[in-house]
Design a protein around this nucleic acid. Structure first.
Lengths: 199, 199, 199, 199
DNA sequence: ACTCACGGGACCTCCCGTTTCT
DNA sequence: AGAAACGGGAGGTCCCGTGAGT
């Protein structure tokens, strides 16, 4: 009566394992430098399942992984920005968390989207996914700034500034293997918020 | 009567052609996504000469191209920042120039160093070259800020902030195929400079 | 009515085809002079399968082919030496068979191991495989001599002498495109056996 | 008035350096595995001179090096075989000298001709050179045996046997990284000479 | 006698995607 | 869902030989 017990119920597990492995590798090396073999090896899932779960191959896998990692990070941003103390303080905490993660990973885990964006700017599906993910992060930041009393237009501009500064700081920090750029950006953003407390 | 210009012996010319082609392709696609075939084809130089001029292969070529492109951009920064009107105005011009270049190239020509940095963060020679190039740009920005009357420590922090914001804006602009992030960053940096006119 | 023989799924067949082709080419040209293209072409098997069956690449292929050819030749030695008439007569037959094979192949098919041994003496895995194969041949010869009544120590020395003389004769025969050295060695070995009929 | 002193008189020296380097590398690795770059590097001579001295390229270089090394070894054989004590004793000395050389070189320096012969059996110029060199060695051995009182036909056969056994022993010794095969052949040849002291 | 640069063709390796069978 | 094998193409590297120009 029961379903065939010998049947591996790894359907879900394999899919997740592929996505996790892809997410990590895209974040560290980008798209072109990441091979399917590497993904399969790191995932531990059977090679034969890859094209069952992702018939679109490497690209479909990458899009799904970007979306997934993007959503996770969006959640993190939302959680950190909703803590009490005002947007400026929340932002400082966010930057510190990112810096800590970067350092802990040996300066390998920067932004999971930026690398792929730059390297695959000519690949429309990838680019569109990156655009979508970035916009969810911006929305989160805008919401926090609006909640702090900032006008919509100012909040939008400020959110872009904040995200850009963080992305750029991650680039510089990885190039230097040093979190100092993260701290510099944190402090300068603080100064900016003090100058115009609520645009 | 002038000597035959098209005559052989392109020793110098081939080398330059390789570097130019590599610079463009690294900027647009990064390291892993750029094949030597592509470089050779775009350069127009003979394939056989590649390993004569760059015995270290792809990596040596990439390092040299990064250094070269980095120096060119440093020159551009220096020229723009030394114009009269103060650092904030100069900066705005710089960002506008970068935005114009990005748009003109169909959003392909972003920062020539950032892509390779993110994708090859684990490749020490590449990373060190990126670090060096970034530091030359930072030095140029710092000098301009110091010339504007800012104290050394503040100038250093501000230079990092400026470069980070620009780098991040280039990422966002490429993802969105829209220069709006460049303008947002330009305006926000302006606000930051107004708040603290001279650290 | 028989099942479609030409139908796909040549898993086993491809593997064997690679090994056969490699065995022949190593025997005729050695390791360095044999390209994978040549092996693939001669095998008729699909190139893409090569690294599936032999992930270790050329070297793994060569080791397997050496082992295989070595084992085949060991079988031949065993069969010839076990025929009635005594070790000396068996040996003469063995040498004649080798000489006939050499001539029939246009002096291309000498010892399948010697070439690779000399040329790749610095390649430990190859060297160890050669050593192993040679020792299986020596064991076969020793056994035949012992069966003939020779004492172990004498049989071991004599087996080495016999194999060395044959290997050397194959070298000289290929250099001269003439089986005379094979015959000379056959006759001289006969004289040696007559001198010391049984250790 | 004096010839230009600044002019390098390396004409002769470069030629010799190329030949020496080629001789060593052919002996250790054979023809196909030896690159011109390697030869140039080891020789220390300027790369540009190679095709001046050897317009025929790699093959001409190899032929000349084989001839040269072959002649050197022929001289060594002649010297050793002409010492008093009879052919059998001289032969034992020759084998010991070869074994010592093999061991001293880390089992790299075997016969300088055999490797190339086996690997390039299809290359007529190379094969003919090998044949010629071998025949000079055989002539030397034959002369020594004739001087010992052996009849011409028997001496010819015996010389082939001796050279074959030595060549084969060098193959086995390199495969095993052990001079034992050399000693076995030395002792067995001794037994052969005792059996038929003077054909 | 030697240098620089070419020139193109291999080399071995490994890629990604598919097909067939279980 | 997964395993095995195919299939062809491209990856970066390095090779050997040639000439023009000292």
């Amino acid at each position: 009566m029961s379903p065939d017990v010998r049947r591996r119920s790894n359907g879900r597990a394999s899919r997740e394992a592929f996505l996790d492995a892809t997410g990590v590798l895209l974040r560290r090396q980008g798209y072109a430098a990441t091979g399917l073999n590497e993904i399969v090896a790191r995932s531990g899932a059977p090679r034969g399942s890859l094209y069952f779960h992702f018939p679109g191959g490497k690209q479909e896998l990458a899009l799904a992984a970007m979306e997934r990692t993007g959503e996770q990070l969006r959640g993190g941003i939302a959680a950190l920005m909703s803590q009490p103390g005002g947007a400026a303080a929340s932002l400082a905490r966010l930057i510190d968390v990112l810096a800590a993660g970067l350092e802990a990973s040996g300066y390998r885990d920067g932004c999971p989207i930026a690398t792929v964006t730059l390297e695959q700017a000519g690949n429309e599906p990838v680019r569109l996914t990156a655009e979508r993910v970035f916009s969810t992060w911006l929305a989160e930041l805008e919401a926090a700034l609006a909640a702090d009393g900032m006008e919509p237009a100012a909040a939008e501009r400020r959110a872009v500034m904040v995200l850009a500064a963080i992305e750029g700081a991650l680039v510089l920090a990885r190039a230097r293997r040093d979190v100092a750029p993260m701290h510099a950006v944190r402090d300068e953003l603080n100064a900016l918020f003090e100058a115009r407390p609520a645009g």
